[in-house]
């Protein structure tokens, strides 16, 4: 990843750091931005909007067949039931995995990603290796993530757009009958909602013995 291996302990500011500072100073002096709003934006995505949102959606779809039906019919509205609305999640589509079909999401052109349910995308999602190869060799990509699917499972790759964002509903792991939504949500890792992982097994749940 170019520019991604900076050491964080040198005191000299890089050219990029200086450019960002210069731009923030300029736009503040012009009165176009309010610096406390920048802090609030950062804080929001650091603490309030992240993959835990999506995990709650998936857990409810697993636990409540009526909700699953609503989610598959109109994901934007079903996700809004949790209050997860807005920026980069205006038009959501939920795609459900089964033993026959595995769904995987990419944005080959940039980094379109369902912010309302997953937060900000990881660097690999935004980088050329994943974006280029997800559509040509999805099975090879999955192998790099340690996922091996049965040979007869079809892989569907969804290329996101500026408008439409996808949420993968991973398969519910066996041995979770009767679990609460909270407990189920612990199994729904971020990558399982992108389609580059499966949901965790009950034995891998955080805090599991």
């Amino acid at each position: 990843m170019p520019g991604h291996d900076h050491s964080h302990d040198h005191s000299e500011l890089s050219e990029t750091e200086l450019r960002v500072r210069a731009l923030e100073t300029l736009l503040t002096e012009k009165g176009y931005i309010d610096p406390p709003a920048l802090d609030e934006l950062i804080e929001t995505y650091e603490t309030k909007i992240g993959p835990r949102n999506g995990a709650r959606v998936v857990a409810r779809a697993w636990a409540d067949p009526a909700y699953r039906g609503r989610l598959l019919a109109d994901a934007t509205a079903a996700i809004a039931e949790f209050g997860f609305t807005g920026r980069q999640g205006e038009h959501m589509v939920a795609v459900e995995n089964s033993p026959h079909i595995h769904n995987m999401v990419v944005c080959t052109l940039c980094s379109c990603y369902p912010w309302t349910v997953l937060g900000l995308p990881p660097v690999w999602y935004k980088s050329p290796p994943y974006r280029s190869r997800a559509v040509r060799d999805p099975r090879g990509v999955l192998a790099e993530f340690g996922v091996e699917l049965p040979k007869d499972t079809q892989i569907k790759v969804w290329d996101s757009t500026a408008e439409v964002r996808y949420l993968v509903i991973p398969m519910r792991p066996e041995g979770t009958e009767g679990w609460s939504e909270d407990k189920l949500a612990d199994l729904v890792c971020r990558d399982s909602m992108i389609g580059t992982a499966l949901a965790l097994l009950p034995s891998n749940r955080k805090g599991a013995a």
């Binding site: 990881p122 660097v123 290796p129 974006r131 280029s132 190869r133 559509v135 790099e144 993530f145």
Partner: peptide, 22 residues
């Protein structure tokens, strides 16, 4: 327009990746 392009190498997966790296 990277879909299907070749030669970009392996995916760099970072465990517990932060939202921002600087």
């Amino acid at each position: 327009d990277l879909g299907g392009q070749m030669g970009f190498g392996p995916i760099e997966i970072e465990v517990d990746e932060p939202n921002f790296h600087a």
